[in-house]
Design a protein around this nucleic acid. Structure first.
Lengths: 250, 250
DNA sequence: CGCGAACTTGATATTTGTCAACTAAGGTGG
DNA sequence: CCACCTTAGTTGACAAATATCAAGTTCGCG
């Protein structure tokens, strides 16, 4: 099976075969992490860069009163903490939402790779900037859409992202997280998740059984939620600019 | 008066005097933009990098049904579109929330600066990553806090950010935006903004008159909203790492 | 002076949260 | 293999937060 990291980063830069081989070699020895474990905590300065190879993780913050907000779901091919070194320390936690295979890559390896391979450098920055775009869309989702559209929008996003890394089949994907996790991502209560979900299923938009989400009518679901995948920046548009552009920020 | 860009970027890297002089020279010829004008629109690929020197701008997305979500307020020292080149095109709009002085810097200039001055490169990436941290906190704000805390939290953030660039006086700052803009940032209606604001004023936390926001009791406001400025990454914590760290991603 | 945009206020509607009881499913020890 | 326990999910009744609608009010500005 193709490597999710390579599949993803193809969207961020024009990789060479050498680039691909190097990226693939990063994902050598994944280790298994159980569900609901923290991978990195707020305040830490991780020495390794963590890459998801399989399963689900999430970025989250926990408030003093116990409330929790999930700020991103991390799927295969996603980095947890690529550029923390520049910020100093983590300002949020990353935990598994379900069992997860992940690779810990020494920062030094990434640094070297980036210094000698400008396309990889660019692709990695692209992935960070695309994450930021996703975050912006989540903000719109929480701020402007009501619960049913909000949930539908998230499902659309996950479908597209998982398609990109080859983790879907024709009508859906493995989605083994709990309704409680989902409620923390959507900013609603788990009781309300249960009701809204029932509603989406009643409208024949999705089904979610045995940890598997089926998208019954993707176009309808996208229309319903106002989903447009532009913010994911998956379609590389030719950059007329000087060749320096690839190198300048790498 | 000190340059807001320099004041801000000091927090992102250990700048030399040469770095400071170069950054300062960027902000040469600001031009004035009226209130409620777009600076850059979704889908565009700006040729210049835009830097706010004075006034207020915001990132926002507009939904087909007319709803608008503001995703960030941009204040002096903030870039609008530093790294768009890597993403290809803007996935959101940037507009003035009020009159604004801004500088348009040719991308080539930035590219050259970054290639020859690693600390500046690092500081610019730092600013982008710190923006991302801010976005995450906004997500928590929208997802988990109710309207009064949410508004208070935003006020705290703006206070700290404006202090950083020398745009506050002892008890507040110029805040000439409309309640409608504020409502689009907080994800509530402007009617509700009016009510919540009245409440905050009744609690003697703030006053907002004649386009000027006074923070009457900052510690109380921070406690009330659960504000902690860690996510802004303004306090540089020493990075034990190898010197390569400054250069690796620059 | 009068217009229009922003803001305020009250009445009411809608969405979502809270609480509590119940059901279903998975794991563990006897 | 069953009794029991725990956790997740469901459902209904009710409460709280916020939205909507509509009618003022204020204020800058032509």
């Amino acid at each position: 099976m193709a490597n999710p990291l390579v599949l993803k980063l193809e969207h961020g830069a024009d990789l060479t075969n050498e680039d691909r081989a190097l990226l693939q070699s990063l994902s050598g020895t994944a280790r298994r992490i159980q569900a609901h474990q923290d991978i990195i905590r707020e305040g830490e300065r991780p020495e390794n860069v963590h890459l998801i190879m399989e399963g689900w993780a999430c970025r989250y913050k926990q408030l003093p009163d116990g409330k929790r907000q999930i700020m991103a779901f991390l799927v295969p091919g996603d980095f947890c903490d690529l550029h923390v070194a520049i910020l100093g320390e983590m300002d949020h936690n990353i935990g598994t939402a379900w069992g997860c295979n992940l690779v810990a890559i020494p920062r030094r390896i990434i640094d070297e790779l980036v210094q000698s391979h400008p396309r990889i450098a660019r692709a990695l920055w692209w992935s960070t900037l695309a994450d930021e775009g996703t975050l912006r869309e989540w903000l719109v989702n929480l701020g402007q859409r009501q619960a049913d559209r909000r949930m539908a929008h998230l499902f659309c996003e996950l479908l597209v992202r998982l398609q990109t890394v080859g983790c879907t089949d024709e009508d859906g994907f493995e989605f083994p997280i709990s309704q409680i996790d989902l409620s923390d991502a959507l900013g609603i209560t788990s009781v309300h998740v249960s009701r809204v979900l029932k509603e989406l299923q009643a409208q024949s938009l999705v089904t979610w059984q045995n940890g598997r989400l089926r998208i019954l009518d993707a176009p309808k679901l996208k229309a319903f939620s106002g989903f447009n995948d532009r913010y994911l920046h998956l379609t590389r548009r030719r950059n007329g600019g000087a060749p320096s552009e690839t190198a300048s920020f790498g």
